[in-house]
Every structure is written in C-alpha cells, then in structure tokens.
Design a protein around this nucleic acid. Structure first.
Length: 572
RNA sequence: GGGCCUGUAGCUCAAUGGUCAGAGCAGGGCGCUCAUAACGCCUUGGUUGGGGGUUCGAGUCCCUCCGGGCCUACCA
C-alpha cells in the first residue's frame, strides 16, 4: 500500500464549467483517485474553487451580489454538480479560505526572507469611472496596425499583433466603455523566477517520464527568448488575499492582494488543511501529506490539468515551493491534457458554447458523460465532441456491450434457475480459457491505469466486457441447459459472477452503474481481483440477486437531434 | 514572426527503428436466439499529408513543403 496525493486544477469561480474543463482535470483525476483507492492505497484527492481575480469581481458585479456572497454561492453550486458527477474529492476547498490566506502569506514571507522577492514600480492603466486598474485585456480600442475597433490591450484578435495598452487608439474600458482612463504608477512584488531558473530547469530535466505536452511547455518557458522571466505576484484589487509577510504587514503594499495564480496552487495545500479542519483532525493530519519532514516522504503526488495551466504548475508553483526553503512536497507527475472541442469549434464559457456540466446532467446520467469523456480524453491531441460520436459510443459500449451483457445473463438465470446463483457443474476448457484471457487483460488494464493512460485503459476495460459476451456465445447455456443442466448452472454462475467483477473493474469509470450492478447482485464485495478464479467465485451458489433495470438506456436519434439543436445556441 | 504539438482505414485512435501498419465504430456476409433489433464469427477498407534523405530496415530519425491546433508571460 502506498500513499497518493492527487490534485485537480481548481476550477474558476465565475460560472458552471463545461465538459472541456471537466475532462481536462477533475474527471481524469477522479478516475485515478478511485482506481488507487480500490487498489487499497491511501489517497488524498483535493480540489477547490479558484475565487480571486478580476473576472470573479466582474461576474459578481454582473450578478449584482457582493463578491464574497457570489463566491460562496457559486462554490456551493459547483460542489453540488461535482458531487452529482461522482467526483470523489476528499475535500473540495475554496481558495478564499482562511487557511489559504495564512499559507499564502506565509509563503510570501518565506520567499521574501530568502531574497526571492523584488519590488517593482510600474505604470498601469487606471479607469477612473470603474474605480480600478485594468488588466491589459480589459482595455479595448482601435488597433494601430489593422484598424480593428475591438482590439484588446494585450493583442489584436483581428490581426494577432501583440499590443501594449498604450498603443491603442481611443482606448476604453472593456468593463464600462469609459474612456476616462489614465496611466498611474503602482508598486508590485515580483517573484524572482529568473534567479531560480536553473534549479527549476534541472528539476524538469529529471522528469523523463512526464507527458511530452507537460515538459515541452515547461521547456518553452524556461528557454524562450531571455529565458524564464520574473513574475508579478500582486495585484491592485479589493478581493483577494491581502499582501503580508507572514502575519506581519508589508510596508508599501497596503491595499493590495496577491495575484490569483500565486495563491491558487497554494490552495492545494490549504484545501487539505481545510479538510482536516472540517474532520476535526489536528494539523498533523494534513501536514503528513505535504511536509517531507512530517511524514510526506513516502507520498506520490500527481497533478491533473489542462495545457493552459502547465506553466504555473511546472514553473511558478515549484518556484514558490523551492524558494520557500522549507521541505514542502513537490509534484511527482503532471498529467496534462489538450482541449476538447465542440462540434468543430471551441467550448467557450464566455460565449456559452457547448455543453455545461449542469446541462449534461439534466439530460443524461453522469456515467454516460464520464465514459465518453474519459474514453476520448484529449491525451495526444485535441479531441472533438460530436453528438453522433457520443450517441454511437455510448450506445455501443455501455448499452450493448456492458448493459446488455448484464441483462442477458440475469434474465436467462431468472427464467431457468430463478433469482439465485445456481449450483452444480465445474469448470471446463472454455472457463479455463476465459480465466486466462481475463487475467491477461486485467493485468494490462492495471498497467494502463497505473500509468494514467486513460484512453488505453478505457479500451482495455471495454475488451474485458467483450470477453463476457464472447464466453456466453461460446458456452451457450441456453443450449447446454437442455442436455446438461449442471453445466448450464456452472456457466450461469460464472456469468453472474462476471457482473460483480465488471462492477469492481468499471467503478472508476462508471461508479453509479457499478453501484447498481453490485446492488443487483446483492453484494458490497468490491475486492480488486488479485486472482481471477477466486474473484469469479465470490458469489456462491444459493446467493440471491435481482434482475436490474436497464443499466443504460440507448440514446435515440430523436433525442440526439433535439440536443444537438438545443446546445448549438448560446447559453443565457 | 518564433516555438511546441499534430496529420495513419469513411470516423475515433494504436503501433521501444525490426513479422504482412493494428483495434473499436461504420459498411458487407454468416451464425445464434439468453438479451436493450442485442451478442458472436468472418470480411471489405491504407502509396501512414506530399517530396527528398539517413539506414540492412522508416508510420517512427533528418531536411523541405502543405494542412490543423495550441502557446507567446497583466484572463485564469
């Protein structure tokens, strides 16, 4: 038994996430967490909402709510949806928690004490009517290069030219449209990543087994241009973690908060502490996961995220950890994902394009989405969601291959032997071959899951389901029943035991259906199959079961067409 | 502009430089009748984006061209 710390990139607070967000971090992290727990490992699976930053403030203002109230409400909404998707977080925290305030300020204090912080005086655009500094992309104006009148202060979307806000002709606030702007001087803290570059580079170089997507993005940032640049870690905002050196004031930084990307990864640690607090446990309960000097030396830490998050997890957060000079746990493996696209375009939170988590659950059970998303996880490149593909995959894999298998064997048993595991007969050559084939495939499945090879795991699991149908076809208990009822009883007993085995193996992907399968077999025996022969004898003769309802109803062409229509438009 | 990723069967994807480039779905044929018109077996289908090179041997390595995507540091 090993100890596994697993974190999913924390979803931003400003709305319900779409399926692309889900498959890029939380869902694969959940798959891995569930699998490792089932294998008997000790798992700490952490997620949280990411609540700071300008977009959160604007979303709250748009909703007409105080920011703290807005975040609290949206956190609960996201937590509820996550629960309904079966995301098995050990704790789902909040980056605005008191724990994160204290820890973030602590890290900043440590970094400063070790000389990794510099103060930089810079000029930024201030919107007098909005009463706030504006990030570059919140300034709009006419592009000096191409004349496009909705160019942003960081880049013109029309001609893709990189811009500085002061380049814009007739600049205005993207928030209010106000042109009452001025450039003001402001002081900010920078993390001296440049000085930590070689240590980070050496660390990245040591990670030879990481996905190429992860390391190539990290290397790009380490080596591009003048190399890794220092990063501003404070902002002029009201909502956030006040800038302090530990618990002491930071002279000259009054009224400023830490940058959301500084405090967000620290929330992984803070959320673990929040979970311990909630459970009434002492600090040692969470520190044993995070402090190498307090029990974390045997922890394996795996992070899950979309590719847009990679620079912060490979560079900035490690810089924070390394720079602290304290023995905090660094990540061991970073699993990163490409994007899921929707029907030829992008999922878009801002444009409301695609299927969002709440909408998904309103039309189909979570397992349908979990299966499709995981079996099509964008591991090697972007992958595309289409309703046709979704319908086809789900109907074939879940309804036909798995669901129908459960249906055919339970109904056959009921009609010939009643709803009890029948006794009599013993294994022949076909059963020996099945045990052999199952063993081979289960060991392959474990290997793929151990290495977080998600699509390959899904394909292997599906192949394991197929073995059941192949066996029934070859054994043909409906035929043997006529001539050798004892043999038929043995075949049916094996078939019914396969249902339990499949429930156990499938639970990381489709936990709700797995529960239904175990309920139908009236067992809570979730033991992972060390030995397949033993596992297939778990349900003994005389054990009662129930013929379950249809596990997975098929998606009709009519439903598919209707949903395709409904979700092509714009949300809200 | 620069960098990274990617291009393999109609579709979604596999293949430490080494048998005849493989699966699933879709298509075709046969079988079965327990089952959600389900299942099983067989089968059609490829100049691995184009061109050049290295090698005994290239989907894989190098060069070049073409297409798609992403990143480029103040959105998070």
């Amino acid at each position: 038994m090993a100890r596994h710390l697993i974190t999913s990139a924390i979803p931003y607070i400003n709305g319900i996430k779409h399926l692309g967000n889900l498959v890029g971090s939380q869902l694969p992290a959940d798959l891995y967490a569930r699998y490792l727990r089932q294998r008997g490992h000790e798992v700490m699976f952490i997620c949280a909402t990411d609540e700071h930053g300008t977009p959160a403030e604007l979303a709250a203002a748009k909703a007409g709510k105080p920011i703290a109230v807005y975040c609290a409400q949206m956190h609960d909404v996201q937590a509820e949806i996550a629960r309904n998707f079966g995301l098995s977080f050990d704790h789902f925290g909040r980056s605005s928690s008191e724990r994160n305030h204290v820890l973030t300020q602590h890290f900043a204090g440590q970094l400063d004490a070790n000389g990794w912080i510099t103060e930089v005086e810079e000029k930024q655009v201030y919107s007098i009517d909005d009463g706030r500094f504006l990030p570059d992309r919140y300034i709009e104006g006419t592009c000096p290069n191409c004349g496009y009148d909705k160019a942003r202060g960081d880049q013109c979307e029309n001609c893709t030219k990189q811009l500085d806000p002061t380049d814009l002709i007739e600049p205005r606030s993207a928030i209010s449209g106000s042109t009452n702007l001025e450039v003001r001087a402001t002081k900010h803290l920078y993390l001296r990543q440049r000085a930590l570059r070689d240590r980070i580079a050496a660390w990245i170089d040591s990670k030879t087994d990481w996905p190429i997507l992860t390391t190539s993005i990290a290397r790009k940032w380490l080596n591009d241009g003048d190399g890794l640049q220092d990063r501003g870690i404070t902002r002029d905002l009201d909502w956030g973690i006040p800038v302090k050196k530990g618990d002491k004031p930071w002279p000259g930084m009054e009224g400023k908060v830490f940058y959301v990307w500084f405090d967000a990864p620290i929330e992984y640690i803070a959320a673990t502490a929040e979970g311990a607090d909630k459970a009434g446990l002492p600090d040692s309960a969470w520190r044993r996961w995070w402090r190498l000097d307090e029990g974390a030396e045997d922890v394996t830490y795996t992070q899950f995220m979309g590719k847009d998050n990679v620079p912060f997890h490979t560079l900035s957060f490690p810089a924070t950890i390394l720079g602290s000079g304290e023995p905090w746990k660094l990540v061991d493996y970073i699993k990163s994902f490409n994007y899921l696209t929707y029907d030829g375009g992008q999922f878009s939170t801002s444009q409301g394009r695609g299927v969002f988590m709440d909408q998904a659950l309103s039309i189909l059970p979570a397992d349908y989405w979990r299966w499709w998303l995981l079996s099509h996880a964008p591991e090697s490149g972007d992958s595309e969601f289409t309703w046709e593909n979704f319908q086809q995959s789900v109907n074939k894999d879940l309804a036909d291959v798995l669901g129908n298998f459960v249906s055919r064997i339970t109904k056959f048993c009921r009609s010939k032997f009643g709803e009890t595991i029948p006794q009599g007969g013993s294994y022949g050559a076909e059963e020996e071959a099945l045990v052999e084939a199952l063993t081979t495939r289960i060991r392959a499945y474990e290997a793929f899951m151990d290495h977080v090879e998600i699509r390959k795991s899904a394909a292997e699991l599906r192949a394991i389901w197929v073995l059941g149908n192949e066996y029934l076809q070859a054994a043909a208990p409906w035929s043997t029943f006529k001539t050798d009822p004892d043999k038929a009883a043995m075949q049916v007993r094996l078939g019914l035991n396969l249902i339990r085995l499949y429930a156990v193996l499938s639970a990381p992907f489709i936990p709700f259906a797995a529960d239904a399968m175990l309920d139908a077999m009236r067992t809570q025996d979730r033991a992972w199959p060390q030995d397949v022969r033993t596992a297939l004898a778990a349900l003994p003769p005389g054990h009662g079961f129930t013929v379950p309802e249809v596990l997975f109803a098929k998606i009709s062409d009519e439903s598919r067409d209707e949903w395709q229509q409904r979700f092509q438009g714009i949300r809200d």
